[in-house]
Amino acid sequence: MSSSTAPSERPRLSACIIAFNEADRISDCLASLAFCDDVLVVDSHSTDATVALAQAAGARVLQRPFDGFRSQKDFAVTQAAHDWVLCLDADERVSDELRASILAARDGGFAGQAGYRFNRLSDYFGRFLRHGNAYPDRVLRLFDRRRGGWRGKREIHEAASVDGPVATLRGDLIHYPYRSLEQQLAKTQRYARMMAEHEHARGKRASWSKLVLAPAWRFWRGYVLRAGFLDGWRGLVYAYVRANYVRQKSIMLWLLQHGQPVGDPPRAPDQPRRNG
């Protein structure tokens, strides 16, 4: 890893983005990162125009087979030109207020901090969710890679961590997580399976009480206790879908611990798929 700067200079900042088939979103993401000194996109061999658009925006592009969200982000951090890194997904953008906060912290040399967290504000069917389990959704995405990064073994719901003080910046990271309800449902089912497999491998077990109570608690906590109802019908739909994610994960973990598959068995190339 290269050193960011001499101590007397303002630290330089690298932006790290992972992407796959994000042609409809990558340009806006990169435009919000124009203040960074280095912008790197790690692409998982997209089949659309993601790579061309990223290169046209001036980003460095590296291609790497996808082997997990944490691993992909960790690889991106190691390939950054500078030690201070700002990590985004292609469906995220830095808001004006957050950009100003980051620039102010950088102008101060990121003094005394190993990293910074900030709120993430998610769009849901045309409006931002400002209550419930969706917000403030604080994430640690700006940090000194010499003091931390995307550590651990969990490839899903990955989170960065650092050794040292972490401050909170003003401003939101704007998030556009879903293109449609169908895409959200498919995404949450895939994530539920990945989490169930991860927890099963670590020896965690599901119980009948968790099957019943955990989804209900997720809905009650988000929609009632954290006032998700203030987001109107969007808050209701979001709370139901997130509760269903917990239900799916618990069911899959239950099946795994009883020796049952949670996906279709492998098929020979010439074997037709069975219906029903």
Score class of each variant (00 low, 15 high):
129 L>A: 05
136 P>V: 06
122 S>V: 02
118 F>W: 14
137 D>I: 10
180 S>L: 04
107 D>H: 12
165 P>N: 06
156 I>A: 01
106 R>M: 03
160 A>G: 08
169 L>T: 10
140 L>M: 14
121 L>Q: 05
139 V>K: 14
180 S>V: 08
102 I>D: 00
113 Q>H: 02
131 H>I: 04
123 D>I: 07
153 K>F: 04
110 F>H: 11
182 E>L: 04
137 D>Y: 11
167 A>T: 15
169 L>N: 11
100 A>P: 05
154 R>D: 00
158 E>M: 14
131 H>P: 03
100 A>L: 10
137 D>K: 12
113 Q>R: 09
110 F>K: 08
151 R>L: 15
155 E>R: 09
122 S>D: 15
155 E>N: 14
105 A>Y: 06
124 Y>I: 00
181 L>D: 05
148 G>L: 07
118 F>L: 13
176 Y>D: 10
113 Q>P: 01
125 F>H: 07
159 A>H: 08
153 K>T: 11
111 A>F: 02
122 S>A: 15
125 F>P: 00
139 V>T: 08
123 D>M: 12
180 S>C: 06
168 T>P: 07
164 G>A: 06
138 R>Y: 03
158 E>S: 15
161 S>R: 09
102 I>K: 05
138 R>G: 02
164 G>Y: 01
164 G>R: 05
168 T>Q: 13
149 G>A: 10
118 F>A: 15
169 L>Q: 09
130 R>D: 02
131 H>E: 02
104 A>L: 15
174 I>D: 11
107 D>R: 14
124 Y>S: 00
107 D>P: 07
173 L>W: 14
117 R>F: 00
129 L>P: 04
149 G>D: 01
166 V>G: 05
152 G>V: 10
154 R>M: 09
122 S>T: 12
172 D>P: 06
120 R>N: 08
132 G>L: 06
149 G>N: 06
143 F>P: 03
181 L>Y: 08
126 G>E: 01
181 L>E: 14
176 Y>H: 13
143 F>C: 07
176 Y>I: 03
155 E>A: 12
139 V>C: 07
174 I>T: 11
104 A>Q: 15
164 G>F: 02
162 V>L: 03
124 Y>A: 00
153 K>D: 10
120 R>F: 00
117 R>C: 07
163 D>W: 01
171 G>M: 13
112 G>T: 08
144 D>M: 03
171 G>D: 13
112 G>H: 06
157 H>C: 14
152 G>S: 14
131 H>K: 04
